[in-house]
């Protein structure tokens, strides 16, 4: 998959984080990112298919006359992921909406990004 190298965390060779910023502002953003990377790697869609959906989701946001909320890149990312998974018949839009509504009905305290502590020990 990705190129990785061993580099120092501290000292002169550490990544220049001083001008960096958090990659993900909220947990759902990293989940959405990981979903796209996994599906792309397994061949569920091509990068170009996803990118085309991302461009149109961003364009749709920009074309709103009165934006309902602040621009969120990862919100467009999720919309693009929904479009490409529905289009490629991995899920249906009814499945997605139904599952999300079920999740919204969970008792209070269970409606946050939860339980993503998968075992990393192997």
């Amino acid at each position: 998959m990705t190129a990785t190298i061993d580099f120092d965390i501290d000292g002169p060779a550490a990544p220049p984080r001083s001008n960096g910023e958090l990659v993900f502002e909220e947990p759902w953003q990293s989940r959405a990112f990981g979903l796209v990377m996994s599906l792309h790697e397994s061949g569920a869609f091509t990068w170009e298919e996803f990118r085309a959906e991302l461009i149109s989701a961003i364009a749709a946001w920009e074309e709103q006359e009165t934006p309902s909320e602040e621009y969120s890149y990862y919100q467009c990312w999720v919309t693009a992921l929904e479009q490409v998974t529905v289009h490629n018949e991995l899920v249906t839009s009814d499945d997605l909406a139904g599952r999300a509504r079920d999740l919204a009905l969970r008792p209070a305290g269970h409606d946050h990004d939860h339980d993503h502590d998968h075992d990393h020990d192997h």
Partner: peptide, 18 residues
């Protein structure tokens, strides 16, 4: 159909189903 559903739940629904 998903515009009014919070984005974190839309993402979680995707992850669960996939």
């Amino acid at each position: 159909s998903s515009d009014r559903i919070p984005i974190n739940l839309r993402t979680e629904a995707l992850e669960q189903l996939l």
